[in-house]
Each structure stands twice: as C-alpha cells, then as structure tokens.
Computed example of a mutant assay.
Amino acid sequence: MYSTLARKHISDSDLGRSSLDRLTPRKVEAWVAGLRAKGLSESTVRSTYTVLRAVLDTAVRDRAIAENPAAIVKRPKVTSKEATFLQAHEVTDVIRHAEGSRYALLFQLLANTGMRRGEALALRWSHVDMTNGTFRVVGTLAREEGQLVVTDTKTAKSKRPFAMTEETKAIFQALRDRQREEREVAGSVWIDSGFVFTTELGEPCDPRNALRAFKVAATKAGHPDAGLHTLRHSAASVMLSKGVPLKVVSELWGHSSVAITGDIYGHVAPTVAADAMRTLSGAYSS
C-alpha cells in the first residue's frame, strides 16, 4: 500500500520531482492541500504524508538533508467516525441470503471472529490447529500491481491467536471437506497453495470477489450500504453489548490501543454503561 501511495501521490507530483535541497515545510503543506483537493480521503492523505515523512527521515539519516521539512508540518488529521453495524439478527439474515455463494463460509467466519477480510483470506492450513482448537492471524491478503500477495498485518498486535468455538470449528471442517472434493475434481490442474479459502482450482480467493458476493447478499437482505467490514463492526458491537470488556475486544480485534477501540465503538458505550450502573446498584440492594 505504501509503495502504491508513493508512486501515485509522491513520485508523480511537483514535490516528488523537486530536489531535496529545495523542499520546505511550505511546499509540503501545499502538497498536502493538493492531495485534499483531489478528493482523497482523510486516511489516504495521512498515510501518504506518513510515507513522505519516512522517506525524508531516511534522507536525514543519510545526511542528504539537515532536517526533515515534513516533520515540521502538522500531521494531517483523520476524523474519528463511529462504525456502522448490523444487529445480530440482521447479520444472520445477510448470511442466509449468501447461501449458495462460494463465500458464505467466509462471511460466517468473519461474523464469528471479527477478523478483517484480508486476514481471513490470508489464512493457511498451517495456521489452523484443529486438534487443539486454535488458529492464528499472521498476514493479510491483498492485490498489489495486479497480483495477490500476502503482506504484513495492519499493526503488530494484529498478529494474534484465536480460540475455536464449535461454530468456527465447523466452518473450518466444511472448508476442508470442500477443498478435498474440489481437489479430486480438479486433478492435475489443482494448485496446492495451502490457503484455507481457495478457488475451485486451489488458488487464493480475490478479496474483491468476496466483497461483490457480500454486497449481493446484503442488498437482498435490505442492507445495501453494508460492506464486509460491517461484519467486523457488528461482531464487536455484539460483544460489547453482551458485557465483554473493551480491553478484551481490543486484543481480539488486533487494535494497537484500547483507545482506538473506544473511538470506533463509542456508540455501544451508553448501553454498556447503563448495564454497569444497574449492576452496581444491584450489588448494594442484594
């Protein structure tokens, strides 16, 4: 992602074509303003600025410039937005409308774990321990320059283990059984990629196809604005509304800090807080 941002928004810009000794904080500010003028999202502008700053930090290290002009410029902000989510019965309805889709099992896994789409699609059978009932996120599958590649996780904490429930264990078993059948049908053209989620020929699944399939199911269920990340948000909302501590959700979701979890899922806080107050009052009256 960083290399793509660098090519599209740094190298191919007036700033990118400038010599290091001509870079100034004012030029960096003008460049950031230009990114916003293009209509780029706040997160994309911030990420691109982060790439530029890292590049110029290296230039300072190598003594190509005395100081980093980007470091003097205020980091572009990203406005925190509460996540949209579906109620538990609505998630169930969307998954029901996905029956028959190749990606129905993916949707079930996302709803039951809160994993990111790319994390689930990057799973390999070597990351799944059916005997001990655990599996582990170690990377994310994405399309870069036309190729599907497994890259590092979003944050260091995103590399995390999961304990299987009866539901997730059944999902993995269904996936294994389906692969076994498809391997027999494909014969010599089967590609033993080792991925958990594969095409009929054993290749990794394209994240874009998974999104398209979900949008079809969500639209049929009456939720045309829902995306795959909605399943992640919905799972977190269910956990928090059922009293699971914010710290636990933060760890399971692989957030770098509990503050991020609180910002994203602040809409659940009033319900949780009300339950907490009732628990406290009940303790004194019992």
Rank of each mutant, 00 (worst) to 15 (best):
K215T: 12
A274M: 13
W190L: 05
T271A: 14
F195M: 03
I191D: 05
T50F: 04
T155I: 06
G187V: 11
N112W: 05
L20G: 08
V149M: 10
E182R: 14
G227H: 14
E184D: 07
L110S: 02
E90F: 02
G133K: 05
S13R: 12
L201W: 10
H255K: 09
V248Q: 06
A186M: 12
A269Y: 15
E200V: 13
P245L: 11
L121F: 08
K215G: 03
V216G: 01
K27N: 04
A120I: 02
V249L: 13
S193R: 02
D93W: 03
A283P: 00
E166I: 07
L56Q: 02
G39H: 11
G118M: 02
T199S: 13
P207A: 09
L35A: 04
K169G: 07
R61Q: 08
C205L: 15
V60Y: 10
P69L: 10
A66Y: 09
R63N: 12
I264Y: 05
F135R: 02
S47P: 00
A226D: 04
K159W: 01
G243I: 06
D152I: 04
G114K: 04
G114D: 04
L246V: 14
A71P: 03
S80Q: 13
A98Q: 00
P69Q: 12
T230W: 08
F135L: 05
T24I: 10
S13M: 11
W31I: 06
L110E: 02
K77E: 12
M1Y: 09
P245N: 12
L175H: 00
K242E: 11
A213N: 11
L121N: 02
V51F: 10
S241N: 15
P270K: 13
M239K: 10
Y284F: 15
S43F: 04
A104K: 02
T50D: 06
L148H: 04
I260L: 13
G16V: 11
R102H: 06
V73R: 08
A236C: 14
T279Q: 13
P69R: 11
G146S: 08
A186E: 09
R117L: 10
E181L: 12
A66G: 06
V138M: 10
T165C: 07
